[in-house]
Simulated scan of single mutants.
Amino acid sequence: MVRIRGRLGRGELSGVARAAFGGRELVSVERLRGGSKKGVYRLVLDDRTTGIAYVWNADEDYWTDVATQDRSDPFGHASGLDLFETAHAALSSTAVRVPRVEMLDRSRSLLAGEVAVLEDVRGGTLEALWERDPGRAGRVSARLGDVVRTMHDSRRDRYGRPGIDRAGVDPVEWLVLCRALRHLGEAAARVDRIAAVEHRLLGLLHDRHAAVAPRTEYGFIHGELGPDHVLVDDHDEPVLIDIEGAMFFDIEWEHVFLELRFGSRYSHFRRNDLDGDRVRFYRLAMYLSLVAGPLRLLEGDFPDRPAMLEIVEQNIGRTLAQLS
């Protein structure tokens, strides 16, 4: 099948729509913005029914150079129908609202790739709601805080993705350190301001890692929970999307990301039982990942370059501020 990268249309998706919704005709397709590992398309049918198609294949995945495809690795490439389906089931079992599944297809007979068709939650993202209606967004954010606490209080004694056991593996904090050291090297090779203080950042990473005490219990986290990954339904309930990276892990890892993405609205998620040493260590590791990762992505043909460059610049600043 020959087509332009990331631009499926009615011809390609009509069979997907028929499989999900029966005999109704697909009248239009809209590719939704965002996403670097899968294509996201709104399907509009002749009776005004809509659905969302997720498409996983090589043409939709801009991460052509990933550290590992090992799905048992918590930091492995979080993409594909298997990870989506397992995460969807695990989140649903903890009463977390995720879009309803209409159809799953692994056959690759409908399309050159794996496909899921989901409920179309039409209330937009929480991020957009903040701009339109801050009061309503505040209520949704408070409910999201309750959802996140429910997730994080779901515990087990092994870290990793749901449905995958990892026994006898390195401590979580060691995995984070190894990943952060790799990201520091990548960032220093590409950013002069990071290279100028690489040795200081190296020492700081080791010092913060050394301060972290061992742990043997882990909470269930989304993995990349920003306001753009939360939809709002007709009842003002938060609906989580982009869930393939969900896993059992240190909840401090998620809180560092929540703090970064929600800013002053982080108060909805704050809790008093976080390990401060882990938070300090994970902040630095997270900032380095958000310098190295986007720069690696930009070495390919990812289209939204200004947004990625803005993420890089913000996190260079955050990284350097850790030395103050």
Rank of each mutant, 00 (worst) to 15 (best):
A213E: 12
D228G: 13
S92T: 15
R190V: 03
I164F: 09
G163N: 09
T49E: 10
A137E: 01
V212R: 10
L297A: 09
F281K: 00
D192H: 07
A67V: 13
D250I: 01
Q69S: 08
G245P: 08
D236R: 04
G160N: 02
L202M: 10
L177R: 09
P134F: 10
T68Q: 05
D207L: 13
R24L: 04
R42C: 02
L126E: 05
A167D: 15
D304Q: 11
D170E: 15
T64M: 05
A211I: 01
R33L: 10
G135K: 03
V101N: 09
R139G: 11
S267C: 11
W130C: 03
R296V: 06
G76T: 07
D275L: 12
S79M: 01
E198F: 11
V239P: 00
Y41V: 00
R33G: 12
E313Y: 07
R261I: 10
I243A: 00
L32D: 02
G185R: 01
G9D: 13
G300Q: 09
I311D: 05
D275W: 11
E217D: 15
V230C: 02
E60I: 08
A20D: 07
R161W: 06
T94D: 08
E198W: 10
T86V: 09
A210R: 14
L144M: 07
T319I: 06
Y54M: 11
T86N: 06
L290V: 11
D275A: 14
F281L: 03
L320P: 10
M286Q: 13
L258M: 02
H235I: 01
D153T: 13
R280H: 06
E310V: 12
L201Y: 03
A116G: 11
R48I: 06
W174N: 07
G123M: 09
K38D: 14
V191N: 02
A128H: 05
D59A: 13
A95I: 03
Y266S: 14
E254F: 09
G223F: 10
A321T: 12
G160L: 00
V212Q: 05
V147L: 00
A321Y: 07
V256H: 02
Y159S: 00
L258G: 03
A116I: 05
R296E: 15
D277P: 00
